[in-house]
Nucleic acid binder design. Sequence first.
DNA 1: GCAAAAGTGTTTTCTGTACACCCATGC
DNA 2: GCATGGGTGTACAGAAAACACTTTTGC
Lengths: 265, 265
Amino acid sequence: MILMLTGYPMDKMQEVEAFFRTGHLQYIPHLSVDCVIFGFHEGELKVLLLKWKHLERWSLPGGPIRRDQSVDETAHVVLKDRTGLDDIFLQQFYAFGSMDRKESVLLELFDRLNVSNHEANWLSERTVSIGYYALVDFSKVNPVPDFFSEACSWWDVCDRPSLLFDHDAMVERALQTLQQQLYYQPIGLNLLPDKFTMPELQQLYEAVLGRKLDRRNFQKKIQKMGIVERLKERRTGGAHRSPYLYRFDVPRYEQALAEGLAYGF
Amino acid sequence: MILMLTGYPMDKMQEVEAFFRTGHLQYIPHLSVDCVIFGFHEGELKVLLLKWKHLERWSLPGGPIRRDQSVDETAHVVLKDRTGLDDIFLQQFYAFGSMDRKESVLLELFDRLNVSNHEANWLSERTVSIGYYALVDFSKVNPVPDFFSEACSWWDVCDRPSLLFDHDAMVERALQTLQQQLYYQPIGLNLLPDKFTMPELQQLYEAVLGRKLDRRNFQKKIQKMGIVERLKERRTGGAHRSPYLYRFDVPRYEQALAEGLAYGF
DNA sequence: GCAAAAGTGTTTTCTGTACACCCATGC
DNA sequence: GCATGGGTGTACAGAAAACACTTTTGC
């Protein structure tokens, strides 16, 4: 096998060759993890995407599952490798296993990489992918591309390029799951900086739900949840009246996550 | 390989041998589907379980995923094979992929079956399993064991034997998912016979939620959903006053499933 | 007739939503 | 001082929960 193509660092070629040849010994073939990593910046919900070398197209970050690693661990490693972040809210939302997700673009790429179909067989057949979504603090992320990608960057969820594989459907489903969970679970911890204002939290909710909320009712609702505490400080420097800063009450927040907030029936 | 053990039909031995030897060519190794099949009978929520030959223990029905079949299709085939039922509400709820689910009891079984570890290797390593739950009409099910099991029968969800692998956790999580979905999706279609009484539907809700509901409020709530129509008939024969029969308004029911019923926020 | 289940309606409480006024800040 | 965003409280409507009496049926 000869791997020779601009954009791929020579000193890693041996490693990559081994990956194609013997990766199936270390990884479970036909199974992978993909992560929808959500961030929040300037009032917009963002998602972290990778730009593939040579394909000029984008996908979600992901990777194969090691035989000696749990699926959850794999997702955490993907998150860590792409963002530098550890110990983050990460939740499985769906396993994608339809037949039409054969990764035919990969075949093209392997072709250009001079990887024979046989050698890359364990990578090119239909792959079942387990989707996770993460909520991270935009300002703490250091985006790092993986070997196959030349760029790793944030995109507006609502204004992103069309993605490879079925990753568009994954983003949609992750967002839908997030919206549903909003009704009985808090969000914000991990997504916002440690200290934040109530209007910022409201913007986050509005970005996720895709609609405006009433300022006063929102405030009452959050207060009733009992998951935030108001600080004496205010955020100064902006125009207009200075809003109070808040901080999540982490124990109560965790409790609300675990027990849920409210139900019908 | 010699397979020779009471309980295993001789005429199928060749097929089974092929399964152990070359199954990994047809199936994705280390990946499977398991189904939590719920039924409802005499006021109790039931789950369909398989009793393994020689192990004297029970598990959920499941199976490996064919390389030419989607994960959803696989789940439908499992359901069809164990119950005879087709075209049933079946929903993926979680993928189980922790490392502690190596199926060590399988090794014991393979040992007794004289299958060498090497031959059965693709079956005995840690397997990631995608969980589905189904809601079926108890009276229409014809339980059929699979090759590895000697019995297939219903158990009370709340009074079942301890299960193999991590299947106890699967049942718990399926039930939890079902409970959550109850707040924004109707259930009953497929679980109840075509015609049913309001007290029966209420018993179903109570069985799933694990608590009593108020008769009058329940009736109002269901009526407001607009998913049932009351028939002129009543159920006669029982003691006491004859209750009306109801039938699901399938188009409205499907619509409620698709759109959801109500949300907070 | 009596025990047990089924049918029905009203009241109260709570939750969600709509809405208006005052206050702080930068320009 | 004025435009803009932030802080706060009240009033109304709809949903959920609490609750009691009458009817039917088999025995």
